[in-house]
Structures are given as C-alpha cells and as structure tokens.
C-alpha cells in the first residue's frame, strides 16, 4: 500500500514540477535550435525543417552530431537559402542530452542513445 502511495505522489510531484524528459537537452535546444526549428521542433513550412517528423533523427541519430557541430554548407544553387550555423563547442554530454531530447520529440519514439555511442559519432565527425 505504501508503495502505491509513493508512486502516486511521485507522479503528482512530477506533474506539478512539469517533469519533461531530458531537461538539459531541452534547455540546450531552446538556446541553440528553437529560433529556427520552433519551440516544439515543428519547423516553419519548408524553410526550417520540422524535427518532429525528421527521418534523420528517427532513423539515423548518428548523423546529428556532425550537423550540429559543423552546420550545413551554404548552397550555391540557392535550393536552400538558409544555412544551419555551426555549434563547435558542444560537449559529448550536452550532445547526448540534445539528441535524446530530439528523439523524445518524435511520435511513438522510445529509444535513446548512450554517451559512448555519441562520443564515437563525434570523434568520427571531427
């Protein structure tokens, strides 16, 4: 019975405090990404891609570190007028939190990534 009460009050506390998954990743997202990709990762029409429906994030999270660290090149053909800026000073832990927050934005997405994998992806990118 005590266990049930504990779970109930923990849930209540969590709701009250607004517990979101990966709060550090969320804070970094707000600082670095939300201006363009939107508060909730919704993007803006075709100009700034939605991160909620991104196939790269869903299927190939290993590609995220390079995109975040180096940004995207300026498209000389103007097919994409917007260049994603580079963020070269993100630590491995921050990158892990950010990727896990981005994964949590996906519908029906359950999996997360570990620091070890992110470290390898970042090393391969530099």
């Amino acid at each position: 019975m005590i266990k049930q009460y504990l779970i109930f009050f923990s849930l209540l506390f969590c709701m009250y405090m607004g517990c979101a998954p990966y709060p550090q990743g969320k804070a970094l997202y707000k600082e670095k990404c939300a201006n363009c990709h939107g508060d909730k990762g919704q993007g803006l029409v075709s100009l700034y891609p939605s991160l909620k429906t991104s196939k790269i994030i869903r299927s190939s999270p290993g590609l995220i570190p390079c995109l975040v660290l180096h940004g995207t090149p300026q498209d000389s053909n103007y097919l994409n007028p917007v260049k994603m800026p580079a963020n070269p000073n993100i630590s491995e832990a921050d990158m892990t939190n950010l990727i896990n927050y981005l994964l949590s934005l996906q519908d029906n997405q359950r999996h997360s990534v570990a620091l070890d994998s992110v470290r390898l992806w970042m090393d391969a990118c530099n």
Partner: peptide, 14 residues
C-alpha cells in the same frame, strides 16, 4: 541576399 536567394526563401515559405 540576391534576387535568386530571396526567391528560394519565398518559395520555401509557400
């Protein structure tokens, strides 16, 4: 922000 770049930007906003 040349004319082609502004065009690409406008097109992306539909």
């Amino acid at each position: 922000d040349s004319v082609p770049r502004l065009k690409a930007y406008a097109d992306k906003l539909h």
